[in-house]
């Protein structure tokens, strides 16, 4: 229903803004009439015990702009945002990893044919996320960190989904690594919401 979509957009904006296990306990329709009548519309699908979410005073403007941008980018980035939201309902870290990688693929490999996905994904994510650094050395260092981390995450996701031998330098799936990957995903969504078609040439030089 449209009102559910709008409410979920608000929740999605909060989740894109920062980490923390915020979720809607339920939705209650309250018709504004003197004779009452209310109903419960959804079930709780979040984590009972999780990391608290705090909205800071300085975040408000950013949250509002994310919320507005979400509406315009639903066709292009809908899968990424849906997978981010679904990851909040998962109990298994491996499932969260799979959700995150699908979201990354939607963001960085949208409209791409097969081949070199691992390289393209990690390279583009590295370029975009390192663009936040102003100094060239820091940018290079950041690029290395992000692209190598995402390559490992991509490999781990392939092993989980397809089976087969694990690489030597593999990603250890634990809360820290999943949180780090989640932060990269949130940063990517935020940057791509603001600039949906970044020029890779501009990012490189």
């Amino acid at each position: 229903m449209p009102y559910m979509e709008k409410t979920f957009d608000g929740l999605c904006a909060l989740r894109i803004l920062r980490s923390g296990d915020v979720s809607c306990l339920t939705m209650i329709e309250r018709p504004d009439n003197p004779f009452g009548g209310l109903s419960l519309t959804t079930e709780f699908r979040g984590h009972i015990f999780g990391q608290p979410y705090e909205l800071l005073r300085g975040d408000v403007g950013h949250l509002q702009s994310i919320y507005k941008l979400i509406e315009h980018q639903k066709d292009r980035m809908g899968i990424a945002m849906r997978r981010l939201n679904q990851s909040y309902e998962r109990r298994s870290l491996e499932d969260i990893l799979i959700d995150y990688i699908i979201a990354f693929e939607n963001l960085y490999l949208y409209g791409e044919g097969p081949g070199e996905k691992r390289f393209k994904l990690s390279h583009r994510a590295g370029l975009l996320l390192s663009s936040l650094e102003t100094r060239i050395e820091e940018r290079r260092k950041r690029y290395e960190q992000v692209s190598s981390f995402i390559q490992k995450a991509y490999d781990e996701r392939s092993t989980i989904v397809h089976g087969g031998p694990r690489r030597k330098r593999r990603l250890k799936v634990n809360e820290d690594s999943i949180n780090k990957l989640g932060d990269y995903l949130r940063q990517s969504i935020r940057l791509l919401l603001e600039n949906p078609e970044p020029s890779l040439t501009n990012l490189m030089f």
Binding site: S23, C24, T26, I28, E29, R30, E54, L63
Partner: peptide, 22 residues
């Protein structure tokens, strides 16, 4: 009829009491 859909936010706190999104 005016309808208000209220969704309680779990694990959420805020430094700002009112945040309009639209």
């Amino acid at each position: 009829l005016k309808v208000s859909v209220v969704s309680p936010l779990w694990l959420f706190s805020s430094e700002v009491s009112y945040v309009p999104l639209d």
